[in-house]
Design a protein around this nucleic acid. Structure first.
Lengths: 123, 123, 123, 123
DNA sequence: GTGGTCTAGACCACC
DNA sequence: GTGGTCTAGACCACG
């Protein structure tokens, strides 16, 4: 459902935030649904619960999650709108990565080819 | 000649390493050429000399640079081979970014479109 | 546990690296053990934490330490093998020092005597 | 006649100073003899003349060399006494190296053996 | 002028 | 608390 890359320079909690927004963008999670529990998600991602907690805390501040008593968080009504904004962030982050790849000597063809290859692996 | 993105989560010294390897990959810098001086490069990148020095030190360990006693560093003969390896790293980093973008909810079409847009901006 | 000679021409971070390898060579530190914390070791050696950090970073690259995300560094399984290599380096450095001492006019007897004297002071 | 180890952390000019004192200690060079020319010595040691010049300048300050007009330096009358002092420095430097070797995990037997081995190679 | 080492101290990510 | 990155600036060795 969610994946995280521990060896990436991108902070894990940012990856978790982006991942949850992605699930909502793709409609796999809807406003009103319960978000995965912090401990459970931490276990499946093999990550410290504090790291997940930080992601949830920031998502709550952004209005993407509603923190309920007892710890269960719920996808907020606003979540769809917030996730839309997240899409722009994701696109910008991807563009930055593309620019860095260019500076490393990859051609535009290399980048297009890389995208096509990944697409075939996991359409 | 070289650029660096200070707001990126990728460490600046890694960007400098990748950038130099890219210049060699693209043939803009050749074995035997003098590498930019640490202080000079630091000034043009608006970065602390120590940060550039760290990049150079690691490049020297990798055999990409020859650090001469008391003089400029020189692109090593091995540099082309090492830079080739760097291309693989760059491609891998780009693939990771693409996967993260996917998890954030972008479609493969979004990614292809993003690459095409960037290509038009800076061909 | 570890000592460092600030007035030596040998860089402090190299002495720290050699010292840790020595502790493993002597069995006083074993794979799986936690390495001293960077800040703690810096404090006991009266050295800047950055200097210790540099030593640890290089030891991690060499595969002697496992740098865990957000936790203590741990002596790697490979450490014993790496430390064995360090013994060779240490012997070579000592041989160099002996050759320099010879060039300075000391006789082989002087060197043997010096070793015996030190041995009595700290057996 | 003289040797220098460029990869040693000990400054080259210090090695040159120690080497010249060693030649006097061993009687291969006597007060009143001409010291090797700076340019010539630099050429045979494959070292920058400035480095040799610095060694000579410091030796002159210590009273070990007499700098004559025209550039030729001469071993001073005092040189024997100064060289004796240099022996103490050399012994201390060797002792430091031995201590570092010990911290790296070498036993006293290792050190004695190393000295014996070197002695056989170049008696 | 060059690179190399070290210090001091900041901020961030993670436990 | 931990390690990692970065800055600012000092001093040294070398050309």
């Amino acid at each position: 459902m969610l994946e995280v890359d521990l060896s990436s320079p991108v902070p894990v909690y940012d990856q978790i935030k982006a991942g949850l927004k992605g699930l909502v963008s793709k409609g796999q999670l809807r406003p009103g649904d319960e978000a995965p529990s912090i401990r459970g998600l931490a276990a499946t991602l093999k990550v410290n619960p504090n790291t997940v907690a930080r992601a949830y805390r920031e998502l709550a501040i952004e209005g993407f999650l509603d923190a309920r008593r007892g710890g269960q968080s719920v996808i907020a009504e606003e979540a769809v709108r917030v996730a839309k904004g997240g899409l722009g962030d994701a696109r910008e982050a991807f563009a930055d990565a593309a620019r860095r790849a260019r500076r490393s000597g990859l051609s535009w063809d290399d980048l297009s080819a890389a995208v096509r290859t990944l697409m075939k692996e996991e359409p």
